[in-house]
Amino acid sequence: MRILKEEKGQSAAEYILLFGGIIVIVIAAAIYYKNYLSGMGNDVNKTDVKNINNSLTSLLPKFS
């Protein structure tokens, strides 16, 4: 009868399953966004950095 009254083990197992599911979702999202952001990085580096560099170079004579 004591087994029926103690539910600490059951709730601990439920928390472990819940946190395990959350961890799996977070890892899957991190892998997805890593692939998404790594593909975007090349485009940003090629175009935006050159434009910013050219803009800063054109401003240099004004501050000298």
Rank of each mutant, 00 (worst) to 15 (best):
L56K: 09
P61F: 04
N54R: 06
T47A: 09
K50L: 00
Y32N: 03
I25K: 08
K5L: 04
M40H: 09
N42H: 08
T47D: 09
V26F: 12
L60R: 06
T57P: 00
Y36E: 01
N45G: 14
L37T: 01
G39I: 00
K8H: 12
A30E: 03
E14K: 15
G9N: 10
S55W: 02
N53S: 12
Y15K: 15
E7L: 10
K62E: 12
V44D: 06
G39S: 02
G41V: 08
G39F: 00
S38G: 04
P61C: 12
S11P: 03
K34R: 07
M1P: 09
L56W: 02
V26G: 14
F63N: 04
I52C: 05
I23D: 06
M1G: 12
I3G: 11
E6V: 14
L60S: 15
L60H: 03
I52Q: 15
R2W: 07
V44Y: 05
R2T: 05
M40D: 05
A13M: 11
N35T: 01
N35Y: 04
L56G: 13
S38W: 01
I25Q: 11
L56T: 07
I23P: 04
N42G: 14
S64K: 09
Y15E: 15
N42E: 14
G41T: 06
I16D: 10
K46M: 04
E14F: 08
E6Q: 11
I52L: 08
K5W: 00
K5N: 11
V44P: 11
G9Y: 02
S11L: 13
S38P: 01
L59A: 11
S11W: 06
G20D: 02
